[in-house]
Amino acid sequence: RRRVRAILPYTKVPDTDEISFLKGDMFIVHNELEDGWMWVTNLRTDEQGLIVEDLVEEVGR
């Protein structure tokens, strides 16, 4: 599965499916959606939700 790492921290918008995360958090990407959004699991918190791909970088497989 594709893995990405947060290059900046992010605080979710209330009442959305987004998740908050810290710089350096690692994610497993489950689905890539329209407009640059991805459905992921945060490996640090085990939380699932939406993040925007502009805030992450690819991690070598």
Rank of each mutant, 00 (worst) to 15 (best):
E47M: 07
V52Y: 14
W37C: 13
P14R: 09
M26H: 11
K12T: 04
V29L: 05
F21M: 04
R61A: 15
V13C: 14
E18Y: 05
I7S: 07
R3C: 07
R2D: 08
F21Y: 10
I7Y: 06
L55D: 05
D25M: 00
V56H: 01
M38S: 05
L50I: 12
R5T: 07
E53H: 13
R1G: 10
R61T: 15
V56C: 09
G49H: 02
T16A: 03
V4N: 02
E57F: 04
E57Q: 10
K12M: 08
M26C: 12
N42M: 04
E57T: 09
L55P: 01
L43G: 04
W39D: 07
G36L: 04
V29S: 02
M38L: 13
T41Y: 06
V4Y: 08
S20P: 04
G49D: 02
E57P: 02
L33P: 11
M26E: 15
D15W: 07
M26P: 06
T16M: 02
L8Q: 11
P9E: 10
P9C: 07
E32T: 14
R5C: 11
I7G: 03
E57D: 07
V59M: 13
W37E: 08
P9K: 07
R61M: 12
R44P: 01
T45Y: 02
V52K: 14
G24V: 03
E47F: 02
R61F: 14
R44A: 06
V40I: 02
R5Q: 13
F27A: 01
L55E: 03
I51F: 02
N31L: 08
L50M: 14
R3F: 14
E47S: 06
M38K: 05
T11A: 12
R1A: 09
R44D: 01
E47I: 04
E57N: 05
E32C: 11
V4L: 11
H30E: 14
W39F: 12
T11Q: 10
G24F: 04
Q48K: 14
E53I: 11
I19W: 00
L22F: 09
D17G: 10
G36W: 02
W39Q: 10
G36M: 01
R1P: 06
T11P: 04
R1L: 11
L43R: 05
D54K: 15
A6I: 01
L50A: 14
R5E: 09
A6F: 01
V59Y: 09
L43D: 05
L33R: 15
I7W: 05
E18S: 04
Y10W: 05
R2G: 07
E53N: 12
K12I: 00
